[in-house]
Each structure stands twice: as C-alpha cells, then as structure tokens.
Write a protein that binds this DNA or RNA. Structure first.
Ligand code: MN
Ligand code: MN
Ligand code: MN
Ligand code: MN
Lengths: 218, 218
DNA sequence: TATAAAGTTTAGTCCCAGCTAAAACTCTCA
DNA sequence: TGAGAGTTTTAGCTGGGACTAAACTTTATA
C-alpha cells in the first residue's frame, strides 16, 4: 500500500519524534532537500498520517504512528533474523534491513517472528514492537546519565553508525555487558567506565547512544 | 543501480527468451499495458540492455542477460534460504522472493550463498546461476517428452502457479521423486505415470511444467 | 523594534513508469 | 493484391518523488 518513500518518511518521523519534527531535521535524516520533505509532509498530511502545521513542524497521527511502528517491527525482526541465521555482525545488519523492511509480507513477518520465538529485542538491544505496534515502556537510561558506581548492564547500542559500532564492539561494549561508571566529565558529558577491571574513556557522543539498565547487573 | 521495474523487465525477458520476445507477450507476463512495455523496451535499448527492432520484438544483450541472471540468482537463493530456515512450503516461496530479490546487496547474497553451501538448485529444482551468471546446460526434459517405461526422477516443478504446485505436492510429485511413464495421450500430450505403484493422470498443462531426468533413477 | 539570518514553503522542472486512445505497421487470406 | 485483423508504437496525460531558485515566515540580533 505505502510506497518505500512513504514508509521511510514515517519511520524517520517516529525516530525523530514524538515532539514536532522540523522540516530541515527530517530532510537531513533522509538525505533529501527541505523542499522535498515539505512536499511529502503535505501528502502525508492529506492521507491523515501526519499533522503538519506550516512553518511549525509535523508529528505522526495515531494512524501514522501505527504504520511507522510496523516498519520498525519489520526492520528489527529482519536484523534479528539475519544475525541469527547468517551470523552477520552488528555493524552489517542495519543497511540490509533498511532495504528489506519494505519487501516483507505480513505472512513472512509472522513466519520470521515465529522462527525467532517472538524476540523482544534486536541485536542492538532495540525493542521490537509487537504485531499491533505495542511497545512496552522501557526503563533503559543513557550511559551518560547513569549514577556513579552503581552496577549496570549495557542494554542498547546504536545501529546506524558503523564507526561507533565497530569501536564499541572492539571494546566489548555490547548488549549484556556489565560495567560501572567511575567518573563523569562535568563539561562535555563524557564518562569513564570500568568493565572487566579495565578503565575505558567513552566520549559524550558515544555515551549518548549507549543505553544501560540496572536489571540483572551484579 | 537498476530500478525494481527495470529488474523485473529484464527477468521477464530472460524467462521468455532467448528468442525474440513480442511486446504483447512481455506486457502480459508483467501485467502491464503493451504501450508501457514498448516505452520500457526503448529505455532498455537506450541503456544497451536489450536489442529492440520496432514491430519485430526484442531480446537481451549480453549485458542485459548478465543483469537478468543476477536477479534470477537472487530470487532462487532467496527461495532456498526461506525454505531452509523458515520451512516455508514450495508454494509460499515465489511471491516472497519476487519482492525481496530487489533488496539484496551483493554482500548479503554472498552470505546467503555461503550459509546454504553454494546450492545448485532451488526448492523447485530450478538451477541457480553462479555469481557471474554461469548456468551449466542442464539435461532435464519435460515430463511429457520422457520415453515410456524408462525410470525417471522429478527434477523441476513450476514455481509461479500455486494451484498446480499444491496439486503436485499433494500427489507427491516433488523434486527427487522417482516415477515411470506408463502411457501418453497422443492428442493433448497428457500422460499417465506410475509412482510408488500407483497410477496417476497428469494433464498436458501440468506435464509441460514438470521436468525429469534419468540421473539417479532406479 | 527594525532588520538580518535562518528556516520553510511555493513555483517551476525533471525523470520514471504507468495508463488510454489513436495512428502505424505487419500478416493473412479472400 | 488489398482489406481487415491483430499487433505495436506514438501521442498525450497522470502521479510519485526528487531537485533548484525564489518567495515567504519566524526568530534572533542590533
Ligand atoms: Mn537498524
Ligand atoms: Mn537495530
Ligand atoms: Mn520463483
Ligand atoms: Mn524457484
């Protein structure tokens, strides 16, 4: 029903939301000219998928969000499926899923979900929306915001940025890994963590994209 | 590089070739108006993928055939992959592969090929072209053309027609199955086969789409 | 508070790929 | 051989989705 372009716009809107998204931000995220984003927002608004206030920004309607979550679900199921079957590394998953997500029938989506045993998270630790878009509130917190000395477990790593992902992988900072914060740079938000007895400097830009939780941490 | 539409046209040209393909035949195969097929043939001709003689028909150039075989390879690898991992039935494979085949990167194609152990045939028994489009000549022969009483093994079944496929499956007429021809209708080309001691009437339209070979048949 | 800068939308084009209707071609057969 | 039937191409239109340049709003700054 929805074209590849429409699905991509909706997914971007969801990723940048839920607050009003600026035309320019959306355009940048999709590597498209601002004028193109405006045109599309008008079409999406026409179709009731987006609420657009000219010059002010746009946000997903309930219908739009439901469709966006369907794309996110397919994306994350595919990442999980490719990792499980083909043993692809975390840094190879995103780009493949980015294209395949638009070619998955409901039947195949269900078959994959079934095969994987209804997984709750993808290999980056991102939660997988349910068949109707259900997404339980998760208590994960940005690494930079975790209190000092409290044991934590890595729950989410970024999926888009292959550079960061490779570095995290090399340092062993992957979902499931336990660590503690030993220091926080008060200016730029960078942190020093201890994992496996070793100290590691994590830049603010990276710490922003890694999420942790206290669940199951010793 | 090539759009979904272009890839589909090339694949259809290959399936209908190698002789000159009529505009109408191509259009029908793609469920498109003849005028649309003409337009596309002109564009493909412009790009050197097709040799088109107005009012006479068109055929793939070497470059065009190479690209077509790349699509066929992805299609058949995907069918094999989905069957192996998700245990999808032979009748569920084609439609899914039809869309996914356009979203497969060279890296993922290679990973799947590797995972499957470089399969030579897909679940319908169709040969899978190699990475460079290599397709060894195969000696399989239409079921209707097989001599009487000589043992044969089913090597290929159709993939597009879910009806026929379901019937074949129900009768046990699947790749690998051994059988003998016991009679041939001289008028319409239908045949009677014996498999597992039981006799079975096979209509000409079905017998045309099933291929057999003598290899490994007792 | 006026004006400049930044952000957004409109206007005008382009390409792709589909459609219908009309014109052109080819083939067959009387 | 020359209609008429069938096939193919051309002509003209549509919609999706991209672009640049120009116009318009909003926001920031002097
Ligand atoms: Mn991803
Ligand atoms: Mn992910
Ligand atoms: Mn197929
Ligand atoms: Mn097949």
């Amino acid at each position: 029903m929805a074209s590849v372009a429409v699905e991509n716009y909706l997914k971007s809107m969801w990723e940048l939301g839920p607050a009003d998204v600026a035309t320019q931000e959306l355009a940048q995220h999709l590597a498209v000219a601002p004028a193109s984003a405006t045109r599309m927002l008008q079409r999406l608004s026409e179709r009731g998928l987006v609420a657009h206030t000219p010059y002010r920004g746009a946000s997903l309607t309930t219908t739009g969000e439901r469709k966006a979550l369907a794309v996110v679900r397919r994306h994350r199921l595919l990442e999980t499926f490719l990792a499980r079957t083909l043993k692809l590394g975390r840094d190879q998953l995103h780009d493949e899923a980015e294209r395949l997500e638009h070619a998955l029938s409901p039947a195949l989506e269900a078959a994959i979900d079934d095969y994987l045993g209804n997984p709750q998270r993808d290999p980056h630790g991102h939660p997988i929306p349910g068949p109707q878009g259900e997404l339980p509130p998760e208590g994960d917190v940005a690494l930079g915001d975790w209190p000092l000395d409290r044991p934590a477990k890595v729950s989410q790593v970024p999926d888009r940025d292959v550079e960061k992902l490779a570095w995290l992988e090399a340092q062993g900072l992957v979902p499931g890994r336990e660590l503690r914060l030993v220091a926080r740079d008060p200016f730029d938000g960078g942190v020093t963590v201890k994992l496996d007895g070793k100290l590691l400097q994590v830049a603010a830009s990276v710490a922003d994209e890694v999420r942790v939780s206290g669940e199951g941490a010793t």
